[in-house]
């Protein structure tokens, strides 16, 4: 049976200018808001969630950690690493940084 796949392009579906951990004190487009609105509600509905990181201004560490590290704290590091895939032609090393954020979510 084919995997059930969902693709989310952050710059188009959320915002190209993300910043900070917590909404609203850190900004409008924060990591926790992205996680709660885009990732957590569908996490169990798909086999693969593909995150397209291109066409954004950049991903500050606070946003990354809260969105993806936070997802690993809400579910598990193993599940998140298995389910999330990343596309980033603009800044390929970013994928490794996000994977580290997930792996280090409880450190």
């Amino acid at each position: 049976m084919d995997d059930k796949i969902k693709t989310i392009k952050i710059a188009e579906e959320y915002s190209p200018i993300v910043k900070g951990r917590h909404y609203p004190e850190d900004g409008k487009f924060t990591g926790d808001r992205f996680r709660k609105e885009f990732l957590e509600p569908i996490f169990n509905d798909y086999d693969i969630i593909r995150i397209d990181l291109d066409d954004s201004y950049g991903y500050p560490s606070s946003f990354r950690e809260e969105a993806f590290g936070g997802l690993a704290r809400a579910f598990s590091i193993k599940e998140v690493l298995e389910k999330l895939e990343f596309i980033c032609t603009d800044e390929p090393p970013l994928i490794k940084l996000i994977e580290d954020d997930i792996k280090n979510a409880n450190k």
Partner: peptide, 13 residues
């Protein structure tokens, strides 16, 4: 430019 954006964001935070 990505480094500039992320650094300014972290400085403000």
């Amino acid at each position: 430019f990505r480094l500039l954006y992320t650094s300014l964001a972290e400085l403000m935070l």
